[in-house]
Write a protein that binds this DNA or RNA. Sequence first.
RNA 1: GGGGAGAUACCGAAGCGGUCAAACGGGGCAGACUGUAAAUCUGUUGGCUUAGCCUUCGUAGGUUCGAAUCCUGCUCUCCCCA
Length: 432
Amino acid sequence: MCEIEWKMNFIEELKWRGLLYDMIPGTEQYLLENKARGYIGFDPTAPSLGIGNLVQIICLMHFQRAGHTPVAVVGGATGMIGDPSGKSAERNLLDEEELRFNEARVKEQLARFLDFDAGSNSAILVNNYDWFKDISLLHFLRDIGKHLTVSYMMAKDSVKSRLESGLSYTEFSYQLLQAFDFLHLYTQIDCRLQMGGSDQWGNLTSGVELIRRKTGGQAFAVTTPLVTKSDGTKFGKTESGNIYLSPGLTSPYKFYQFWLNVSDEDAVKFIRIFTFLSREEIESLGAEHAGRPHLRILQKKLAEEVTVMVHGREAYEKAVKASQILFGKSSTEELQALSEKELLEVFEGVPRHEVSRSELEAGIPVLDFLSEKTGILPSKSEARRLVQSGGLQINKVRITDIRHMVTTGSLLRGRYLLVQRGKKNYHLVMAV
RNA sequence: GGGGAGAUACCGAAGCGGUCAAACGGGGCAGACUGUAAAUCUGUUGGCUUAGCCUUCGUAGGUUCGAAUCCUGCUCUCCCCA
């Protein structure tokens, strides 16, 4: 996957990409002088990592490209506790079954991004449950808890900010668990660096501190900035929810569209963060984009790079094709020309609905079709409004008459109807 | 424990006996413009068999020809005093 480019300056790389927020003094020098091991933890709080986690994954990838050994830690143990960092309220615990399920999914995903066959700096993937499961509470308190004081732990932002609103002993202890992870990796595999998002600073330094007090050794930490959007809304979420890396939760098409729709301002920033393009390539793309912004060169390249990295070239190409059909000035004829297979591919991930073929043969009034028959809209009033405002298209034909009848005559491939609500919302209705 | 204020549609907030499906703002949805952008402009935003009808203003009752508006009980929230 990547040649060892020993001596490439990892920290320098993070800096120009806008991926460096803070680090412990001496980190850069340590990384220049040593072939290091560095880790990032991922708690399996959802059945898939989201694009918020992508920054951390990319960080590990850069780390590996710089010739170091990346260590990905799945938080099978820490996920049971819940990290209070960046959270304003106590969270509900995941039940264990769910956690183990998520853990397996997250593990599979992480494995896809790292190179486990890179010789001396092959990636390492571990689960902290493996070293936590056999530790008894008494030993943990004696061996670990003794080294950090309550006042030290209370000084962390993640704790301080929660003293008013409430923080359970469980979440309070989280930093101790994470610190122990670091200590464990430090002593077992000489891993001296931990990376993470800027909200993790407190947890990372707890680990560094624990290592220093317990072993007298020096460990390092690097944080990446929180990715923000220029309009102030939260990165990684859309109206329809989180953007996940798993194709089952966020289709490659939606994933591709997410990046394609990034604003100009964000595209400039994101292309440095989320792609591995060189500085020269990015600068030239930026200049090209500035000259002809309407072509959205940056967004297209960004969407291509990230989609290919996460879902593969083939899925990317399908997403592009689907986008062309959905957003191009495609007509009914072009839709008719698609084979059933292509049709299903293009509309993979688009909500599907079923409608009875016999009723369709008799003809269904559009309003009933949109509301009670398919559930695309919750009420007939809404269906009426949509049609009257001109926002409805069936098979790319705009329907404006509320008395319109939907019949089998308009089925694509004898089975499908493409219902479009507004510009971006598609539904595939199948006659059954 | 005592005193006061309040609960209105997705959110904020007017309304204080009929003209209220309920002003206004935000948000949402749609249209125009555009680059599948931003900004802007327009329409729309309880349901239905839609020039009409039905159900909504914390909740349960009551007064009245008629209630979001008046009265009573209940629930919850906020403020002040102890």
